[in-house]
């Protein structure tokens, strides 16, 4: 149901925009301009068609999908759902992914702000060396430590828990780097001095002055952190074993090998369920996300 409304929404959305586009500049509409619009709309359709196929096929039975292609929805949605749910609890995967991603975003946001503030406003021995070392470590690809990471989790006895997926977020060099640059330009040291004279403790100053000022930058980074954690595949794949703990991406990989794969309709439905909520969320947030991406690259 959710899937259908989402499509309707975005379809009607595109239709609306199209009509806006075609009617508004009526005064002087040149042929090349029309061509460009046609091209853009064609590209938008290409972008969207895999999703459309997915949504349509999610409502069709296995037999129907095997026998041919159409864009007319079928009537097997409920059966597909039942088949899928009898093997895989996709909502549990959703819940797990959401839980992990939210905690990761919070941890990464808070501790990166803390570290960035520490680097920006205090003078202490080894500060520069540490900062440079951190920047160097930023260049290290995540997979490099994979095997050591796995052994570490084994020795700590935290395999098959969410700890190895959540706690490391407290140390995100890139976010620290970004926030440090940001707060150096936005927070004037005199503000901190004034607070100190008022007798505020260092942590209080951080929480009441620095955090609010950093908030826009933290929000920007949070979007990346959230998307990154939400899409993380290799770490949970290696660390988690019990199917009930699987995150959505791992569960999707799982779907391929499971008995659901015998039924294409259920398979499409499973993918659709993993995709549609993100699309809906994006409809609400698209402007903000786009701005964050722009900001993230320019500030670089």
């Amino acid at each position: 149901m959710i899937g259908k409304t989402a499509v309707d929404n975005s379809l009607s959305n595109s239709v609306q925009k199209k009509s806006v586009i075609e009617t508004k500049p009526k005064r002087k509409i040149s042929i090349p301009k029309l061509l460009i619009y046609a091209l853009l709309i064609a590209m938008a359709i290409v972008c969207f068609i895999p999703f459309l196929m997915m949504l349509v096929n999610a409502t069709r039975s296995n037999e129907a999908i095997l026998s041919g292609f159409t864009l007319i929805p079928g009537s097997a949605l409920v059966e597909n759902y039942q088949t899928m749910m009898s093997y895989i609890n996709i909502w549990a995967g959703f819940k797990n992914s959401l839980f992990i991603s939210v905690l990761v975003t919070l941890l990464s946001g808070y501790f990166s702000a803390l570290t960035a503030y520490g680097f920006a406003f205090y003078v202490f021995k080894g500060k520069n060396a540490m900062f440079v070392f951190m920047l160097v470590m930023m260049m290290v690809p995540g997979q490099l430590g994979l095997i050591g990471f796995y052994e570490l989790c084994k020795n700590l006895g935290i395999l098959d828990t969410y700890i190895p997926l959540i706690i490391p977020a407290a140390a995100s060099p890139f976010v620290v780097f970004f926030l440090r640059q940001y707060i150096l330009t936005t927070l004037h040291p005199s503000l901190i001095e004034a607070a100190r004279i008022d007798g505020a403790s260092e942590f209080k100053i951080f929480h009441t002055i620095a955090i609010p000022i950093m908030m826009p930058a933290i929000a920007t980074m949070s979007i990346f952190t959230f998307i990154g954690s939400w899409n993380n595949y290799i770490m949970p794949l290696v660390v988690l074993f019990s199917p009930e703990k699987f995150t959505l991406p791992v569960l999707m990989g799982f779907l391929k090998g499971s008995q659901v794969a015998q039924n294409l309709g259920s398979m499409y439905l499973g993918i659709a369920i993993s995709v549609v909520p993100i699309m809906v969320a994006f409809l609400f947030l698209s402007k903000y996300i786009v701005n964050s991406i722009s900001a993230g690259s320019i500030k670089e």
Partner: peptide, 11 residues
């Protein structure tokens, strides 16, 4: 946030 945390706790 709330949904995520709630989901986590209940699971």
């Amino acid at each position: 946030l709330l949904v995520g945390l709630f989901a986590g706790c209940s699971s």
